[in-house]
Amino acid sequence: MQLDPTDLKILALLQADGRISNQDLAEKVFLSASSCLRRVRMLEESGVISHYRAVLDPNVIGLEVDAFVQVTMRRDVEHWHENFTAAILSWPEVVGTYIITGDANYLLRVRARNLKHYSSFVLERLYKTTGVLDIRSNIVLQMLKDSNDIAAELLLDGQ
């Protein structure tokens, strides 16, 4: 789908405030409310906008530990990828999972109430998963930037 500058402005505004009213959005992009609504629906139907969500503050809800965990698997274990994938999907502590390049197979983002909870997760679940060979944890000390926003400028660079 080819996005024009108006589409990109709509996307940037929705990323900043997913609860903005259609009327306010239309005014900010200089469209009529009906035209703006048509564009938003087109962006949703085409999959450019995949869903809307509330962003929670982990510290406010009691999740003090944020960790990135590299997991290396034993390749001699049959169905290691399928088994590991099934396991991580059932663990609420794992909030992000990525297949990566380099020495490890996976990078997990793990949230836990405290260090004891995190330790229990690693020792009782992660290490006990069939095929896990090595685990390397990096505890986040301070977050400088955390965003899923795709900047309109990035999209415009390709045009």
Rank of each mutant, 00 (worst) to 15 (best):
F121S: 00
L13T: 05
Q2W: 06
R136F: 00
N138M: 11
D57H: 08
K9D: 14
A54N: 13
W91G: 01
D24Y: 06
E45D: 14
I150S: 05
A87N: 06
E27A: 15
N148L: 13
N59S: 14
H51A: 13
M73G: 14
S90P: 08
L115D: 00
V55Q: 06
A54Q: 08
G47H: 10
R111S: 07
D24P: 05
Y98V: 06
L89G: 14
G131A: 06
D7A: 07
F68A: 12
S34C: 02
K145I: 10
I99W: 08
D57M: 05
V94C: 01
K128N: 04
V132P: 08
D149E: 07
K9L: 12
L156Q: 09
L126Y: 10
L13N: 09
M42V: 03
P5F: 07
I100N: 03
V69R: 07
I100D: 02
V48G: 06
I20N: 02
R38S: 13
R38V: 11
L108N: 08
A112W: 04
H81I: 14
L43Y: 02
E78A: 12
D17N: 15
T85K: 05
S34I: 03
Y106R: 11
V95L: 01
A26P: 12
T129E: 12
N59T: 12
Y52R: 15
T129V: 11
D57I: 08
I100W: 07
D146P: 01
S120L: 02
M143R: 14
S35K: 04
L63K: 15
K9H: 02
S46P: 09
L144D: 06
D149F: 00
V29W: 10
G62Y: 10
G158C: 13
